[in-house]
């Protein structure tokens, strides 16, 4: 569960083209400033994290990044190209995948079909017309995602027959099966126990080794430290700190805003 020192040094946020960049992003709901001027860059092959108390705007930021939540102002860039006027589905087709804070599986599809929904959008997964129309034929990307999320044996189960933790793994598998270039995970381990969390952390690191850029929203500080290369801290819709996870969680402002007594106990 330790990350080698070499990998840690890898975070150098200013070199090369970022996979993703946000410039002064604002999302207001009426008078509520959910995200209030956030700018950040995500580099390829790194795992980023966002921490912050409930309601600090973490999920809203993810929503804005995937264009599901309307932007009040600001710019979003993927691979250096602005996309803040594009539709949510076109962002997904650029291979930005996400999981949701709540489990969102389709009740009438079994596990395999739920995951395959993600693989369906892939360019490299176009079976010939006949098998596509008839709905026959396999899906290597789906098999691969089932593999990575360790969902063997559950393929023909329906979501309502699964435990909460397993449902969450199906969510992650669906996102992976799209072969993403940027993966946004919104509290993927909520409701999981320590062992399951460690597994998700392990999965994220193996995806990182394949070069995938990931952004993790999470409450579990230990998991953040174990998993992320670079952490952003948010409060009241603004970034209040960023840097190496160990440094960010020691930042007095962050401790004040979010961790408080709980973190000191932890340490």
């Amino acid at each position: 569960m330790t990350t080698s020192a070499n990998e840690r040094v890898a975070h150098a946020p200013d070199s090369g083209t970022p996979v993703f960049e946000a410039r002064d992003v604002k999302v207001y709901f009426g008078g509520v400033k959910a995200v209030d001027g956030v700018s950040l860059k995500l580099m390829p092959g790194l795992i980023y994290g966002i921490i912050g108390p409930n309601g600090s705007g973490k999920s809203t930021l993810i929503g804005a990044m995937t264009r599901l939540t309307k932007l009040t102002s600001g710019e979003l860039l993927f691979d250096g190209e602005p996309y803040h006027n594009a539709s949510a589905s076109s962002i997904a087709r650029k291979r930005v995948a996400r999981t949701f804070q709540t489990v969102r599986l389709l009740p009438d599809l079994d596990v395999r079909d739920n995951i395959r929904l993600g693989a369906d959008g892939r360019q490299d997964e176009r079976p010939n017309l006949l098998s596509r129309i008839l709905g026959i034929g396999g899906s290597p990307a789906t098999d691969d995602a089932i593999d990575k999320a360790q969902l063997h044996g559950f393929e023909s189960f329906y979501p309502s027959e699964l435990s909460y933790g397993t449902q969450r793994r199906v969510e992650i598998a669906r996102a992976i099966s799209t072969n993403p270039r940027l993966l946004l995970l919104d509290e993927p381990t909520a409701g999981m126990n320590q062992t399951e969390r460690a597994e998700i952390s392990q999965l994220m690191k193996s995806l990182k080794n394949d070069g995938l850029c990931q952004l993790l929203v999470e409450h579990d500080v230990q998991m953040m430290i174990d998993t992320c290369d670079h952490v952003f801290a948010m409060n009241f819709g603004k970034l209040i700190a960023e840097g190496r996870p160990e440094d960010v969680v020691r930042d007095p402002q962050v401790q004040e805003a979010y961790l408080g007594r709980k973190w000191r106990e932890h340490a």
């Binding site: 995937t66 589905s89 076109s90 997904a92 389709l106 929904l117 799209t178």
Partner: peptide, 18 residues
């Protein structure tokens, strides 16, 4: 599958590129 997604969860559907 895609019709199912569009019906049950349009937001999810667009997040997988539909």
């Amino acid at each position: 599958r895609r019709i199912d997604a569009v019906r049950d969860d349009p937001e999810l559907a667009s997040s997988v590129g539909i």
